[in-house]
């Protein structure tokens, strides 16, 4: 009796878990209201401005300087995270040492910590009488209130993206591929460059792209350490906030839209690259 009752009258295929309509509907509603709508609103706001005005805002010297600083600092932070994140993931996966699980858990601190707290802590450390600043300032390496400070803050908040995307791939890597390379005469460096790295490259690309996108928009951690001097150490998202406070909604929207566009282009590019790289690796 229960068998027949469970079969829908229409004879559709039965699913393992019920409630597909409900869960799918909730998911789409959420994505629509929380994710898609604000972005659409932003684009509509940007469209209101008109191309000429938009171009004038984006190419204004102060906006250009802010965008340039943001991009350069994000690139620096991402370059550092790409190398260091990969190393971190490697150490966590390949070695067994006391405290490994603790270190593994600590990787998530930048995710969990309020970014403003991170910004304050970094500023205190790197200021001239902070622990790091005491050493770096006399050596002629000023960090606080420079692009380096911006990059440090960005790198702090975005490193888990690299570690957490590469780590699982590295863990699942087939050991016998490395052994095969060894028996075929490959040196450790060749094994890494030609067997291991190509295997993790797709995930690594995604991780670094997300880290870069996150750095572009990082706000809380940066504004404390950057000093926020217009034309010098003012990041793009802060400039958008300043415009908003000046009731210059168009200015704010244009800058925000530019940041969104850059991040979008990067994500699409990285997904396309990843798809290209993995296209023929997946069994049919």
């Amino acid at each position: 009796m229960s068998m027949t009752a469970a079969l829908p009258a229409s004879g559709r295929q039965r699913r393992v878990l019920p409630g597909f309509g409900l869960t799918m509907g909730l998911t789409l509603t959420y994505v629509g209201i929380i994710v898609l709508l604000p972005v659409i609103a932003l684009f509509l706001k940007g469209a209101e401005i008109g191309p000429a005005r938009f171009w004038a805002i984006v190419t204004a010297p102060r906006t250009l300087a802010a965008l340039r600083l943001t991009m350069t600092a994000a690139a620096l932070a991402t370059a550092f995270n790409a190398l260091y994140g990969l190393l971190m993931a490697w150490v966590l996966v390949r070695y067994r040492f006391p405290g490994r699980r603790l270190l593994d858990a600590m990787m998530d601190i930048p995710f969990a910590l309020p970014t403003a707290v991170a910004g304050l802590a970094l500023t205190a450390l790197f200021s001239e009488n902070g622990w790091y600043g005491q050493v770096l300032a006399p050596a002629g390496i000023p960090v606080v209130y420079t692009i380096w400070g911006v990059a440090v803050a960005m790198s702090f908040t975005s490193i888990p993206f690299v570690v957490r995307t590469v780590q699982p791939i590295l863990e699942d890597l087939d050991h016998s591929q490395e052994e095969a390379a060894r028996t075929l005469g490959a040196t450790p460096l060749q094994i890494f460059a030609r067997v291991i790295f190509p295997a993790i490259l797709p995930a690594f690309l995604v991780g670094t792209t997300i880290a870069f996108a996150r750095s572009l928009g990082e706000f809380g951690a940066v504004i404390f350490i950057a000093g926020n001097l217009p034309m010098k150490t003012e990041i793009a998202s802060l400039l958008a906030v300043i415009r908003l406070e000046e009731y210059d909604y168009n200015g704010a929207a244009a800058i925000a839209l530019t940041l969104v566009a850059i991040a979008m282009v990067l994500l699409v590019l990285s997904n396309w690259l990843q798809a290209r790289l993995t296209r023929r690796r997946v069994p049919a």
Binding site: D174, S176, Q177, E179, A180, A181, R182, T183, L184, G185, A186, T187, R194, V195, P198, A199, L277, R281
Partner: peptide, 27 residues
Amino acid sequence: AAERRIGFVFQHYALFPHMTVRDNIAF
């Protein structure tokens, strides 16, 4: 292993998935 110059065929083959057959054999 490299100095011994042995050929090892693994149970699950352990082919390099990102290389063509040609590149695998030439490795």
